[in-house]
Simulated assay, not measured.
Amino acid sequence: MKKIAILGSTGSIGNSTLSICESFPDRYRPIALAAGQNLDAAFEQCHRWRPRVISIATEELAAQLQSRLKAAGITGIEVVYGSAGTVRVATLPEVDFVVSAIVGVAGLEATYAAVKAGKTIGLANKECLVAAGELIMDAAKEHNVALLPIDSEHNAVHQCMRGGTPAEVRQIWLTASGGPFRSTPLADFEHITPAQALKHPTWVMGQRITIDSATMMNKGFEVIEACRLFSLPPAQVRTTIHPQSTVHSLVEFVDGSILAQISVTDMRLPILYALAYPERVNAPADSGLRFDLAALSQLDFSQPDFARFPCLRLAYEAAETGGEACIALNAADEVAVAAFLAPDPAQAIPFLGIPRTIEQVLMQTSSRHPASITEVLEADLAARACAREVISRQFTGVLR
Rank of each mutant, 00 (worst) to 15 (best):
residue 277 Y to R: 13
residue 324 E to C: 15
residue 286 D to R: 00
residue 319 A to G: 03
residue 317 E to H: 10
residue 318 A to R: 02
residue 281 V to R: 01
residue 316 Y to M: 11
residue 293 L to E: 01
residue 314 L to R: 10
residue 323 G to Q: 10
residue 316 Y to E: 12
residue 289 L to R: 05
residue 319 A to E: 01
residue 330 N to Y: 03
residue 308 R to N: 05
residue 280 R to M: 10
residue 319 A to N: 01
residue 325 A to W: 12
residue 311 C to M: 11
residue 296 L to H: 02
residue 279 E to P: 13
residue 323 G to N: 10
residue 303 Q to E: 11
residue 302 S to R: 01
residue 282 N to L: 14
residue 301 F to N: 02
residue 314 L to Q: 12
residue 316 Y to L: 11
residue 292 D to M: 10
residue 326 C to F: 09
residue 277 Y to G: 15
residue 299 L to N: 06
residue 331 A to R: 10
residue 287 S to F: 11
residue 327 I to M: 01
residue 315 A to I: 09
residue 298 Q to Y: 11
residue 285 A to S: 09
residue 288 G to T: 01
residue 292 D to Q: 12
residue 310 P to N: 07
residue 316 Y to R: 11
residue 304 P to C: 04
residue 289 L to W: 06
residue 285 A to E: 12
residue 322 G to D: 14
residue 326 C to L: 03
residue 300 D to M: 03
residue 278 P to S: 00
residue 295 A to F: 13
residue 321 T to H: 12
residue 325 A to F: 07
residue 296 L to C: 09
residue 308 R to C: 02
residue 321 T to K: 15
residue 305 D to A: 07
residue 279 E to K: 11
residue 320 E to L: 08
residue 283 A to C: 15
residue 305 D to W: 00
residue 324 E to M: 13
residue 279 E to T: 11
residue 277 Y to A: 15
residue 315 A to H: 08
residue 317 E to C: 05
residue 282 N to Y: 15
residue 287 S to M: 08
residue 306 F to G: 00
residue 284 P to N: 05
residue 316 Y to V: 11
residue 313 R to A: 15
residue 288 G to A: 04
residue 313 R to V: 13
residue 328 A to G: 12
residue 294 A to S: 13
residue 300 D to A: 10
residue 320 E to D: 10
residue 322 G to P: 10
residue 278 P to K: 00
residue 313 R to D: 15
residue 293 L to K: 04
residue 294 A to P: 01
residue 325 A to Q: 15
residue 328 A to F: 06
residue 313 R to K: 14
residue 280 R to I: 10
residue 282 N to F: 14
residue 302 S to H: 02
residue 313 R to F: 07
residue 283 A to E: 14
residue 312 L to P: 07
residue 290 R to C: 09
residue 329 L to V: 02
residue 292 D to Y: 02
residue 291 F to Q: 05
residue 320 E to G: 13
residue 331 A to F: 07
residue 308 R to P: 05
residue 289 L to Y: 07
residue 286 D to G: 02
residue 291 F to H: 08
residue 298 Q to F: 12
residue 325 A to M: 11
residue 326 C to N: 13
residue 291 F to G: 04
residue 292 D to E: 12
residue 305 D to H: 00
residue 288 G to L: 05
residue 296 L to K: 07
residue 292 D to T: 05
residue 317 E to R: 10
residue 318 A to S: 14
residue 327 I to A: 00
residue 307 A to G: 05
residue 317 E to W: 04
residue 281 V to I: 15
residue 290 R to V: 03
residue 303 Q to N: 08
residue 320 E to V: 06
residue 309 F to I: 03
residue 285 A to H: 04
residue 291 F to A: 08
residue 316 Y to Q: 10
residue 286 D to Y: 01
residue 305 D to K: 00
residue 281 V to N: 01
residue 302 S to A: 15
residue 332 A to M: 04
residue 328 A to R: 11
residue 303 Q to G: 00
residue 305 D to S: 14
residue 293 L to F: 11
residue 330 N to F: 03
residue 318 A to P: 03
residue 296 L to V: 05
residue 309 F to C: 03
residue 284 P to W: 06
residue 304 P to V: 07
residue 280 R to K: 14
residue 282 N to R: 13
residue 285 A to Y: 03
residue 305 D to T: 08
residue 312 L to S: 06
residue 278 P to G: 01
residue 307 A to D: 12
residue 289 L to H: 05
residue 316 Y to I: 12
residue 309 F to E: 03
residue 318 A to E: 09
residue 279 E to V: 05
residue 314 L to I: 03
residue 280 R to V: 13
residue 305 D to N: 13
residue 329 L to C: 08
